[in-house]
Amino acid sequence: MNQAFPLLPEQASAQAGEVDALFFFIVAVTVFFTIGISLVILFFAVKYRRRSDEDRPREIHGSLWLELVWTIIPLGIVILMFAWGSKVFFQMNRPPDDAMNVSVVGKRWMWKVQQPTGQREINELHVPVGRAVKLTITSEDVIHSFFVPAFRIKKDAVPGRYNVAWFRATKVGTYHLFCAEYCGTEHSKMIGRVVVMEPEDYQTWLAGGPPPESPVVAGEQLFTELNCITCHRPDSAGRGPVLNGIFGRGVKLASGDTVVADEAYVHESILNPATKVVAGYQPVMPTYQGLVTEEQLIALIAYIKSLQIPSGETVPVPEEAE
């Protein structure tokens, strides 16, 4: 990164090598065809240069055989590229289960990051080397895009939505974090850095600042403060569905559809509770739009995610509430 005149970006994540391999394969195809065809054209242009104005070259209409050849060969090449690219893309979009969760909120013009243990950072992200990091990305205003060239990852931060990206840093160092989607005046200043540290250093760094409040704890506090607890009681006696163990499961809705209770659904249910009401319940929940910030929402979601099924009980998922 401190090189004065680099020609290729650093490879600092597990994905970077995969993306580069694919990239150089396409570069090879590109260079081969560009140079090959250019040389043929130059060769023809010189060899068949008009000698006299009376030249009347013999007519050639075309050749079906040739047309088929130069349709099918490129088709084969692009199918290969497509398959390879899709494989890499799926990996990029499938965070491993053991990934640590980091939440990212874009705001004009800064990146607000929160560690799984609750430490907040602005325009910086500290991560341990070798550990998978799952990013849950959203925005408070316009569309931004979280871009770390050294990791070859990029994901838009879209207001009202949670997008997911992940990486596993492989090299200790400091890397650029850019906003890649134009977001207004200070777009080019919305840059930060990702600091990849040895796990021990990362632990030391975590211990450094003031003792953080973990998002789960903050979420639990909010859950009480906002009186969510009065309806969403863990003993299924409240007016709202029980939330223990609900996260990640299918939920049957009053409309007959089933949705997975993921981040987006919980987010929507807090802000627009009447949109997708769980089967067997009345749409009585008020909206919390304007009452909770994006960061508080993330804390609430973290808390709901953490709610386990009390041992010894049957699963009180709402599917059975009918």
Partner: peptide, 9 residues
């Protein structure tokens, strides 16, 4: 006559 949060929709 809709829930308040449905108003934007």
């Amino acid at each position: 006559h809709v829930a308040v949060d449905m108003a934007p929709q």
